[in-house]
Amino acid sequence: MNELIYAIELTITGLLIGSMYSLVALGFVLIFKASSVFNFAQGAMTLFAALSVVGLFPIVGFWPALALTIVAMCGVAVFAERVIFRPLIGGAPLVIFMATLGLAFMLEGSAQIIWGTQPYGLDLGIPIEPIIIGGVYISRFDLVAAGVAGLLVLLLVLFFQKTKIGLGLRAVADDHVAAQSMGIQLRRVWAVAWALAGLVALAAGMLWGARIGVHFAMSLIALKALPVLIIGGIESVPGAIVGGLIVGVAEALGEGFVGSMIGGGVQDIMAYLVALLFLLFRPYGLFGEKKIERV
């Protein structure tokens, strides 16, 4: 019985943490869908956003810091579109990928110049004591974080389905030349996709930052997103969500049951183990976009 409760507890924790993995992966999916580019700078954007919030927080207060950071992330989006995409339209995907690598270094470099390299703590004022439901301990922070992640995903889905620019984004994701032929402006759509990815990075950066602190290793968060993308399929929003949850649960269960037997350290490899299984048996991911082929 205790085992069962323990398993439930681990699963819930895994799901909550997984939702934050989903959030990070979602940033990649947004840009990949719009432009078929794997945005190496997503991790750096997460770091940059988190640092900007914690850096400005003591000076101007929380909400102004948040607002300024949103403006900054939109600025990064416009910059990325101008400097990376516009001149490189029609270029080889690898060239554009390298350019995102360059962007990552630029963001990390400027973050270092502005805020230095020391770690920061971020207190969002979410109470830490867990709530207990039927003997199961649930972290209140993780619950709030998952709620924020879920809300953000919901807003994104509504944006895609209900707005004109959302339709434009989906059209560009499907066939960007055809989209251009009907007057959908690639530049604008790309800038919007980058801005959305920036906002997602901001949310992820704040939630992760509040959980584990804001420091430069945060840009390695991209490494967490990779298995999520393999599992869910890099072009799929639902894939990023489900993939993140799977990784979260696998990590929690792996650490809780296997890790306790062999002395820990299982958590970090679980994600890659699951991803490897997917690569073997379902290489295009759970929701990887299948080409529609009529027979």
Binding site: R170, G183, I184, I292
Partner: peptide, 19 residues
């Protein structure tokens, strides 16, 4: 034709009116 394969017929038409 270059329809948006993963969009519905009506969404394709709406995309045509984008401009």
């Amino acid at each position: 034709r270059r329809l948006f394969q993963h969009l519905t017929v009506e969404e394709n038409l709406r995309a045509g009116a984008y401009s």
